[in-house]
Design a protein around this nucleic acid. Sequence first.
DNA 1: TCCAGCCACTGACCCGCAGTCAGTGAATGT
DNA 2: ACATTCACTGACTGCGGGTCAGTGGCTGGA
Lengths: 247, 247
Amino acid sequence: MGILERKEREKQMRRDTIVRAAEGVFFEKGLRAATLEEVADKAEVSKGTIYLYFASKEDIYCALITRGLRLLLETFRETKPEEVGPAGALKRLGSAYLEFSRRQSYLFRMLSAAENPSVTENVSPAIFSELEDASNNVLGYVATFVQKGIDSGTFRSDVTAHEAVVLFWVSLSGILNLRQRSSTFKGTRALKADSIFASVDFDSLYSKCQAYLLDLLVSRKTGSAEWRSPARKPKGAVKQARVVRKR
Amino acid sequence: MGILERKEREKQMRRDTIVRAAEGVFFEKGLRAATLEEVADKAEVSKGTIYLYFASKEDIYCALITRGLRLLLETFRETKPEEVGPAGALKRLGSAYLEFSRRQSYLFRMLSAAENPSVTENVSPAIFSELEDASNNVLGYVATFVQKGIDSGTFRSDVTAHEAVVLFWVSLSGILNLRQRSSTFKGTRALKADSIFASVDFDSLYSKCQAYLLDLLVSRKTGSAEWRSPARKPKGAVKQARVVRKR
DNA sequence: TCCAGCCACTGACCCGCAGTCAGTGAATGT
DNA sequence: ACATTCACTGACTGCGGGTCAGTGGCTGGA
């Protein structure tokens, strides 16, 4: 019965339309200031229709975050981390994360917001489950490379892959968060001169932290010199040709 | 003119009453679900009175966060970190932070929420400035001990105290956040079994992380993890048997 | 002691928006 | 041709953040 399938497809498309409209509005106004009326206008449907697809404003927001996580995973995959060794893979992922937070700054901000339980505590189970899956997929993807390193003896084995990933994640995310925050403030509020945040170069700290975390993982016996950072470069240098050491 | 002073005192007390009432309500319900009506009831004033002391709901929330940061600073001071050396001081502070996040879990969650710019972007300048000061005081307090370590040669000097504090802060806060989140979920939502978060012992990770970060700071004769400067510099004392990079 | 002015305080009210639901009509099935 | 389904609509409701004209008690002066 092709009709049912067509209807299913149409339903999915309508849902996508709403999500994309919501993306625009939420990005521009933020969760609080955005109104569903506006989303409805932009999606060219009535407000009631939105509630046929989502149970609440928070649900839509959550769906956007899920979308963002999937995009992030896609971005990670595009760096082809499997082409290089575990340490190199983490290096690429770290750089991709930085790049992601720059290019998709609104999306990145939303992902950070999702850390806060208050955003996600009232969403419907189905939506939450998708978010959880997406989040696990991203972290799990990173974890595979850590695991590879552990298995191959490149990384120390007294730390589980999951622990390492969590540590990577919170450290790098935290720095990117502050980076974004302080650069936002430069535009809107005058950051006090004696602020700690005003005195830290977050880009530099990010790359330092990345390097440190890698060193932490790399077991001392094997050469830890492998993935010395090619240093912070003008933007656009992320995907520059690099020397890949193959054994 | 004692009357003016008395009035000033009374005003401050009224404000405190409101803040304390708000604390109860916000802790119980969260920012979104809490209503000012309820705060007013609890504080035994009318809703209008609240607006004589605070410009918006967000302002009150922000004031609570500021209170929380001051309490955290107080907690830090009570551990007497100056009694021991820099490394010992950081250990005490780290443990105190963990303890704080346990005892004052609602407060801690609010502090984490404050990381998100959307919470603080619309508060009035005066309130925001107080928050900024409180935040700087806490981080600055920690920084003094890092600085002591650097000055005395106990800590490496190729990292600024502020950088180190920021790294400490985001890493430990991030772990505590996830710790709290995962333990909260255990109560309300069933965390998926294959979730990364379900497989990590955050308490253990916290202490490991604390130890790693300290190790990072403590300078060593033989090259340990080296913070690479963002400026390209010749790789000096890399350890043994490293692989020579081609070209 | 009385009065005028001040001001902290009140709570009824306004308004915007999340969320609802009875109604509509087009597509589908018989 | 008719019945049924169902995606969709948009006027409506309730709630809660924020407002403001009004009130009464304190104060300082006469």
